[in-house]
Design a protein around this nucleic acid. Structure first.
Length: 587
RNA sequence: GACUUGGUAGCUCAGCUGGAUAGAGCAACUGCCUUCUAAGCAGUAGGUCACAGGUUCGAAUCCUGUCCAGGUCACCA
């Protein structure tokens, strides 16, 4: 698209130079022409008319006539100050030339580290993690595609009171069982004891609640909670037994969660562990305190005063000297910049932590760390249930990532069976198709919504294979693939002299792929790419239904349509790969 | 209360820096498989863009105010 605009702009500047030499516009606004009107692109004449103080219609007419001298323009029509332009075959040929190569050359390339996933090791990952992973994966892929040097890292929140709860649960109810002995996936096995702990804890809390205590307060009074707390202190003090159990249970967890990562196609080049970093935070706190950036209150707790930034006092270390969530993040961010020396650190973390990252940035600024300006929180909205409430795992709703994935894959399988096509597939193929269609549907459903917005997620709808779904795109991809597999000739970008409207639409849309990617990279949001891809599939399907490709008798036309099919296939394949949506062989 | 994000068709969402009669999909209804995969295509119906002002040739989009919803404001993570 760009080269067309560039060429047209040159002609327009020419026009203004000859007619209105005093006021040359710095920019021209084009948009695609409305369906009701003839034309492909439209020039906005209003701002120009204002500049030269002429009526929009008169100016539009004058420009329209002038543009006819360009061999890019075949026709022009002025309607209420809109100058609608029909592009010539040469213009379309140019668009094809510009876009048959999908490589993007951009400047200002950066080294970027992106943190995503971030599971807690005490229970299986849930739907919120899915959004996090899909989003992080796609953003990283987009940045890479545009040319940046991207490094994905993962953080395991592997220490703290939560895992201690699972550990106490196991000590109480485990009876020496293992995931192997029970036939349960490791992360679920660990999570089972977290639930057992929670159940017992709320049971023990009942009497306190009856006395009028708040739930959280009451639970803190229970004997079982006390055990977890003691265990945490033991762990922090390096107690051998506590650490052995911790290693054992985290091992089970990693074993389970890595299976889920593999199934989801999620990867990272480096894993960070909170347990290995958190202590360094205390040193930073100490340095900050010594240099007067942080203060100590009467109980001995250390805080930073951010009231002049419109924020509150933020505590960085408890009065008993133990570290807090923010303490370890202070250490971790520094560690990352030491490890990678990158230009930008992107945290993919939910928007409930907006405040946290704002504070983290201010603290690093206050400590005069030069990297403070390069910290970026890529924040995304919640995944809500159908009634608008948060997904929860305890009430029997299938919020666990594995459960949701299983459900979606199962649904994809039954849809395939229903379609009547299953007979032509082997059992193994059917399984593969269900897996990639199910996973694709799930990823697309979570990626098509603007990242900052909350998503209302209905598993049934995501699984639905009709309409605005990943499967629709996958289907279109398979269609192009199947068609191309029947083609034995060469690919030829030489355009036929006459184009059908469906071909023009396809070319126009294909030609905006690169600019779409660049906008996504700028916005750090794959949603536009998801919708672009969906639209490409729609436009191709229309093309497919309206014109013949392999059965076209005119050789020129046939060759060119195969070429368009191939380009569509490539763009679909590239987009889906970036989004992390699997490419099925058959459907 | 403060800060922050949002409110567009019955439902889920687009609508990029202001541009033409506000667009998709789902759900409802109609057609189209002897033709390159019908998980498809074509069509009908569905709207006071939360509300009220303002800015201007022009506002879903920008500004102000109001209402509603989510999130955050811990010596939790």
């Amino acid at each position: 698209m760009e080269s067309i605009y560039r060429l047209l702009k040159a002609v327009l500047i020419e026009f203004f130079k000859t007619n209105y030499s005093e006021c040359i516009p710095s920019d021209f606004i084009f948009q695609s022409t409305n369906k009701e009107h003839q034309g492909h692109i439209t020039l906005m004449v209003f701002p120009l008319a204002k500049l030269v103080k002429k009526s929009p219609d008169d100016l539009a007419n004058a420009i329209g006539i002038y543009l006819m001298s360009s061999d890019l323009i075949l026709g022009q029509q002025v309607i209420k100050g809109f100058l609608n332009l029909r592009l010539s075959p040469k213009a379309f040929q140019l668009l094809i030339q510009d876009n048959s190569d999908l490589k993007i050359e951009s400047k200002d390339l950066k080294k970027i580290v992106l943190e995503y996933c971030g599971p807690n090791t005490n229970k299986p990952i849930h739907i919120g993690h899915l959004r996090n992973m899909f989003l992080g994966y796609a953003v990283a892929a987009i940045l890479k595609e545009v040319g940046h040097d991207v490094h994905k890292v993962n953080i395991f929140n592997d220490r703290g009171i939560a895992i201690c709860k699972s550990m106490v649960g196991y000590m109480e109810y485990g009876n020496q069982t293992t995931p192997e002995s029970e036939g349960i996936k490791g992360d679920f096995f660990v999570g089972k004891f977290y639930v057992l702990f929670s159940t017992e804890c709320s049971r023990q809390a009942q009497p306190f609640i009856a006395q009028g205590m708040k739930k959280e307060e009451a639970e803190a009074q229970t004997a079982i909670f006390q055990k977890a707390n003691d265990l945490l202190i033991k762990w922090e003090n390096g107690d051998i037994e506590a650490i052995a159990l911790w290693n054992l249970m985290n091992g089970w967890f990693y074993d389970g969660v890595r299976k889920t990562y593999a199934r989801l196609g999620i990867d990272s080049e480096k894993d960070y562990y909170e347990s290995q970093e958190y202590k360094k935070g205390k040193d930073i706190v100490e340095i900050g305190y010594q240099s007067g950036v942080f203060q100590k209150d009467e109980t001995g707790a250390i805080y930073i005063d951010l009231t002049d930034k419109g924020l509150d006092k933020k505590f960085l270390q408890r009065s008993n000297g133990t570290s807090l969530y923010i303490t370890q993040d202070m250490a971790l961010v520094k560690q990352r910049f030491d490890d990678y020396r990158m230009d930008k650190m992107i945290y993919v973390v939910g928007d409930e932590q907006n405040y946290h990252f704002k504070v983290l940035k201010y603290i690093m600024e206050a400590m005069q760390e030069p990297f403070s300006k390069d910290i970026y929180h890529l924040s995304y909205g919640l995944v809500l249930g159908k009634d608008g409430s948060k997904f929860k795992s305890r009430e029997g709703t299938p919020a666990d990532a594995d459960m949701i994935l299983d459900a979606v894959v199962e649904e994809a399988k039954s849809q395939t069976l229903e379609s009547g096509k299953a007979e032509q597939f082997l059992e193994k193929e059917l399984k593969e198709i269900a897996e990639s269609v199910g996973l694709g549907a799930l990823k697309f459903a979570l990626l098509k919504v603007t990242a900052t917005k909350n998503i209302v997620f209905d598993p049934k709808e995501a699984v639905d294979l009709n309409g605005d779904t990943g499967s629709f795109i996958q289907y279109t991809y398979v269609r192009t693939k199947s068609l191309l597999s029947r083609w034995e000739g060469k690919l030829n970008a030489q355009m036929a002299t006459e184009l059908a409207a469906e071909e023009e639409d396809l070319i126009l849309h294909l030609s905006s792929f690169k600019s779409c990617l660049l906008r996504c990279a700028e916005a750090l949001d794959p949603a536009e790419l998801a919708l672009y891809t969906l639209n490409l599939a729609k436009i191709y399907n229309r093309f497919y239904a309206q014109v013949s490709v392999l059965k076209e008798e005119n050789i020129e036309k046939r060759n060119f349509r195969v070429f368009l099919t191939n380009l569509t296939n490539q763009v679909l394949s590239k987009s889906l790969t970036i989004l992390g949506v699997p490419l099925p062989e058959k459907m």
